[in-house]
Design a protein around this nucleic acid. Structure first.
Lengths: 363, 363
DNA sequence: TTGTAAGCGTTATCAC
DNA sequence: GTGATAACGCTTACAA
C-alpha cells in the first residue's frame, strides 16, 4: 500500500501538467517538492517560507536557493483551508460606475492592501434580491467580512442574514445593530442648505428624495434640508421637494426639468448627490438658466467631476479616505477578535462644505 | 489512537465556536455534521449539495431538509483546494477612481458574475513595481486568471512574469504575445481628428502624449492623429502636441493652459481621454474661450461625464460592454482549456464617434 | 534545530 | 444507491 502510494506519487511528479496555464510558467511546485530537492523536511521549508525563527542560517540559505530555483508560490487555497480565513473581504456597493462609489472602492482596495487583505467587489444595483443573494453567497463563506453600502435592505434584515462580520457604509439608522461608518448626513445637509440661504436664496429646492427605500440616507438629508429651512423661518414647500428613482445624472436632469416645468420657480437647488447635481446643472443650462446668477446649486459627495464642472460645483465633501480606513479597521477588529461583547460602533467621519462657483463662491 | 481521535472530534464538536463571527449566525456545519444528523454518509450529502444524480429521491429529500435546518454552506476554501481552481479572477487597472476604468470594472464584475466568477480588483497606479508585484502576488496563485490594463510594463515582460492566463486590455502592441482586447486606437484617433478637420479646424492640438511609457495606447492615438493631419495635407506641429504625466482632469487642464500660454493658438483639441478633455474644457472656460466657437473639443472613452458636461463633450465611444465580455470569454477559454496550441488572440472591438456640442454637433 | 503526522472540508475513486 | 477513504497543499503540535 505504502509502496503503491509512493509509486503513484512518483508518477504524478513526473507527469505533472496541471496548472501550467501559460507559456513559460514553471510547473507550480509544492513544499514537498522543494523539501525533497533541498534534502530537508516540509516543516523546515515551511518555516523558511513563512520566515519563522528557528532555522539554522545555513539551512535557510540552502532552502531559499531551492525555493527560488523552483519558483515556489504558496498555494493560497490550502492556506485558506488550513487557516480558516481567506484573506478576502467583500465590498458591496450599488454601482461601480457611480463616481462616488468608485472613489470609495478605490480607497477601500488601497486600505485593504495595506492590511494584506484583498477585496472582492460586488454590485447590488440597488436590487433587494441581489443584496440578499450577496449576503448568503459571497458573504456566506468566501470572505472574512463584508463592507456593504445598503440600498434597499434595512439594517435589521442585513444583520439577520449576514454570516460574517458586517460594516455598513453610509447608514446611520442602524444604531445598535451593526457597525456603521458615515458622515452626519442630517447635519451636513443642513449646512449645505444653510449655505444657500445665507446667500439670500429663498426658494431652495431639494432633489433626491427616495421615499420608497429602506435605506435612510436620503431621508436624513431631507431632514437636514428641512431643518435649515425652518431655522431660517421658511416653511418647507412640497413643490420644491423632488423625488428620484435612481441617483444618476439623468435623474437629476429630469428632476430639474420637472421643477422648471412645474413652475416651482426655485432660486437654488440642494441635490442629495453630486451626480444628481451635475444632471440638474446640465438641465438648467439647457433651459437657459445661468448658474449661479439665476440658480445656485450645491451637491453632496465631493466627487472629482464636481471640481471640473462648468461652473465648478459646490459640494459637501465626506472624508472618503477616513470612511474607507475606519470601515476596514472596524472589520479587522471583528474578524480578528470576534468578541460579541463589543457593542456595534457608530462611527461618524468628518465632512466639509467645499464652496465653488455654482453657489456663487470662488471659482 | 482511534479512540483518542474520536474523543477529540467529539469535544471539538461540543466546544466549536470558530466562525461564529456575527450575532445570530449559526455555527457553520460541515458535510460531516449534516451526514451524521441525516444518518447517511458524507458522500451522499455531497451528492445532494452538488445536485449530482444517483441519490434516491427519498434520501435526497431527507438530506435536503437537514441541510436547510442546519443552514449548511459549502466551505469555499476546501472546494478551491480540492478543485485546483478558486473561481476568482483578477482585474488589474491603474485606478478605480478614473471613470473609464470604473465603468470597465463594473462591466467586468457583471460579466464575471454571469460565469459564476468573482472579481478581485487591484490598482496599479501606473507603478511598474506595483504591476510586477501583482503578477507574482495576486496573479501568482490566488486567481485563476488575470485581466490587466497595462500601464508601464510592456507586453513582453507581462507575459514573461505571469503565472496564470492573461488577457490584456487596451493594448494592441502585444501581437502574438498574449490575448488582448481593444478598440482600433489608431483608426479611432484618426476619425476623431478628421471630424475636427472636417468642421474646418486647421490648428488641431493633441493632448495626452506619454512618450515615457511602455504602454502603447497613447502612441497609437498619436499616430492616428498625425495620420489624419497628413491626409488633410497638414504637417504635424510639435507645438500642438502636448505630453502629460497622468491622465487626470488636472493634467488636461494644465496641458490646455500650457497651449494657451505658449501661444500655440489651437482652434481645436483632440484629447486622448475624456478626463483630459474635461480638464481642458474647464481650462478653456476659465480663459474665456467659448467652446465650440473658439475651440472645438473631442475626447476619447465615452464616459458618462462627457454626456453631461457643459457643453456636452464629443467623444470616441468604445463598446465597453463588449470589451468586458470578450475579455472574459477569452480568459474562460484559457482557464478551462489550457491548450497552448491556440495562438494569442487579437480582438478588436467596435467604437463610434458620438458627436455632441463641444465639436459643434447637436446639443 | 529538524522531522513526523494530524488535520482543515471537499470531491472523487473505489468497493459493496 | 451508498459507504469508506484517499488525496488537495499547507500549518503546527508534538517528538526526537
Amino acid at each position: 500500500m505504502h509502496t503503491l502510494n509512493a509509486t503513484l506519487q512518483y508518477l504524478r511528479g513526473i507527469f505533472r501538467t496541471p496548472a501550467r496555464a501559460c507559456k513559460d510558467a514553471p510547473v507550480s511546485s509544492r513544499l514537498k517538492d522543494v523539501a525533497a530537492r533541498a534534502g530537508v523536511s516540509i516543516r523546515t521549508v515551511s518555516n523558511v517560507v513563512s520566515g519563522s525563527a528557528g532555522v539554522a542560517e545555513e539551512t535557510r540559505a540552502r532552502v531559499q536557493r531551492v525555493l527560488d530555483e523552483m519558483g515556489y508560490r504558496p498555494n493560497q487555497a490550502a492556506r485558506n483551508l488550513r487557516g480558516g480565513r481567506t484573506g478576502l473581504i467583500g465590498l458591496a456597493i450599488p454601482e461601480l460606475h457611480s463616481p462616488y462609489f468608485a472613489e470609495i472602492a478605490g480607497l477601500v482596495v488601497e486600505a485593504a492592501a495595506q492590511r494584506s487583505w484583498t477585496v472582492v467587489i460586488d454590485q447590488t444595483h440597488g436590487d433587494p434580491g441581489a443584496e440578499r443573494r450577496l449576503l448568503e453567497g459571497t458573504g456566506g463563506r468566501l470572505v472574512d467580512g463584508l463592507i456593504i453600502s445598503p440600498w434597499s435592505i434595512g439594517p435589521e434584515e442585513l444583520t439577520e442574514r449576514a454570516r460574517v462580520p458586517l460594516v455598513l457604509l453610509g447608514e446611520r439608522a442602524a444604531q445598535g445593530l451593526a457597525d456603521h461608518v458615515a458622515v452626519d448626513n442630517t447635519l451636513a445637509a443642513e449646512e449645505a442648505t444653510a449655505h444657500l440661504l445665507a446667500a439670500g436664496r429663498r426658494r431652495v429646492a431639494a432633489i433626491g428624495l427616495q421615499p420608497h427605500l429602506g435605506n435612510g440616507t436620503a431621508s436624513q438629508r431631507l431632514t437636514g434640508y428641512r431643518n435649515a429651512l425652518r431655522k431660517a423661518g421658511i416653511a418647507p414647500d412640497p413643490a420644491l421637494e423632488k423625488a428620484v428613482t435612481a441617483l444618476h445624472r439623468g435623474d437629476g436632469a429630469d428632476a430639474m426639468a420637472a421643477l422648471l416645468r412645474d413652475d416651482a420657480r426655485p432660486d437654488a437647488v440642494f441635490a442629495f448627490t453630486d451626480e444628481l447635481a451635475l444632471g440638474a446643472l446640465h438641465s438648467a443650462g439647457a433651459s437657459g438658466l445661468r448658474v449661479p446668477q439665476d440658480l445656485a446649486l450645491v451637491g453632496f459627495d465631493g466627487i472629482e467631476d464636481a471640481r471640473y464642472a462648468n461652473p465648478a460645483l459646490t459640494t459637501v465633501v465626506p472624508d472618503k479616505r477616513q470612511i474607507a480606513e475606519r470601515a476596514l479597521q472596524c472589520l479587522a477588529d471583528r474578524v480578528y477578535s470576534p468578541t460579541t461583547a463589543v457593542p456595534p460602533l457608530d462611527i461618524v467621519v468628518p465632512h466639509s462644505l467645499e464652496v465653488r462657483a455654482s453657489s456663487g463662491g470662488a471659482s
